[in-house]
Simulated scan of single mutants.
Amino acid sequence: MVKIKPFLVEEYMNRVENTPGVLNVAETCSASISIEELTQLCKDPKAPGPLDLSRKLTYGDILGSDKLRSHIANLLSRDSPTPLPAENVIVTQGAIAGNYLVFYSLVGPGDHVICVYPTYQQLYSVAESLGAEVSLWKLKEECGYVPDVSELDNLVKSNTKLIVINNPNNPTGATVPKSVLGQIVEFAKERGITILADEVYSPLFHSLPDGQPAPPSVLSFGHEKTISTGSMSKAFALAGIRLGWVASRDKSILAAVASARDYTSISVSMLDDQVAAYALSPAVLPSLLDRNMSLARTNLKLFEEFVNKYSSALSWFKPNAGTTALVQFRKRGTPVDDEEFCLDLLEKTKVMFLPAGSCFGHGKDFKGYVRIGYACHTNVLEEALVKLGEYVEQNLL
């Protein structure tokens, strides 16, 4: 029987996110929008709505509609010398299904996987459950949580099958710059190693240093054995349609993923496919991204002001992309017990954070750290910060 570790982030969220009156500042999606709000972002008054109600609800296009796959391919082709063909995209039920299918298709007993850390637990625990050996490529705060490519020489093995990265990173909100991505790809290409890049928070590169361009997709560097996964949840505020994708320039990888997918979901909902295609259309996508980028910038500034005000009790690496931040809380200089802190904060104020020490660090790393999702509705963050400030003053200073 396959033995898989408890998914700590999801178990914690499931346990507490429905607390009555909760101010959810742990959610990692850009503040969700309705279909009605989505249609209001459309800049073409003649464009049809997101749903064709006359269509019969069959299984639909098994790998995803041509329209949706084309829009996803265009999204992933930004700054690429070679556009990605639409046929190189497979639509899945969220990025979480896409990632699972990649691991299920490509790794097993006797294989070795290198995965950045910290990151979403799925990206290393699924490979372990399938019998692969996993080495964690530890990111350092003093390096801005950017992977140190020189460390790959000591991590790689003769049986290394996969290098897994996450750009932008969850939970740190850090970006792997184009130059570093290129080095990772070159390292893997020289050794015939496949790269899986979870790009679910892309293209929310909203606060990069002046002069630093947003990195392209990992598919843009000329190494066929690269895979990008993404979804409509984080950057596009549509978690409720449960739609994601797997894309690669390697047809054999796509064939393996498609074959595995036949045993799981067969296809995605035709309704979800239509809504996603509408959201990623040229008439809607620019406005949708502008909305989410503006929300992230506005809220990040608010949280930065809060961190600066209570710098004796809080410290962080200021994120430059995505929707999440990793923040350490201290009481008179000593890191708090992050899970105890989060539960006490929730009980007394209804403000919800995610304990990073217990959910990302297995109880030993990231002591006192919490993950904050700052791309919620601004009024929610503002209310949460008022209550958090009162808590900090009463309990940590």
Rank of each mutant, 00 (worst) to 15 (best):
N14C: 01
G230R: 01
L139G: 08
S259M: 13
F303G: 03
V91C: 04
P203L: 04
C42E: 11
S281M: 07
N18E: 14
K350W: 00
Q328T: 13
P6A: 08
L106Q: 11
Q122W: 10
P147C: 03
L101W: 06
I165V: 15
V380C: 08
K43Q: 12
K157W: 05
R371I: 06
L346W: 11
S281V: 03
A26E: 02
S269V: 03
V200W: 08
P335A: 09
C359D: 03
S70K: 15
F353K: 06
G144N: 07
E87R: 14
V89S: 04
M1N: 03
L288G: 05
A255Q: 13
M293E: 08
V126F: 12
I253H: 01
R191H: 05
S105L: 08
G131M: 11
A247W: 06
V275P: 10
F360T: 02
L123Y: 11
T28P: 00
S281N: 06
F306Y: 11
T324W: 00
G363F: 08
D198S: 15
I96R: 14
L345V: 00
L196D: 06
A321D: 04
C359K: 03
V268I: 14
Y310R: 01
A127T: 11
L196T: 07
G373S: 02
A276T: 11
V126I: 15
C376T: 15
V246Y: 09
E133M: 10
E393T: 11
N159C: 12
F303Y: 14
N379M: 11
P177M: 06
T28Q: 01
A31W: 12
V268G: 01
D337V: 07
R191A: 09
S259Q: 15
L238G: 08
S158C: 05
I4Y: 00
G368V: 10
Y117D: 09
S32E: 15
H206D: 10
G211C: 02
I90C: 09
F303E: 12
R191Y: 07
A247T: 04
N99L: 12
S294A: 11
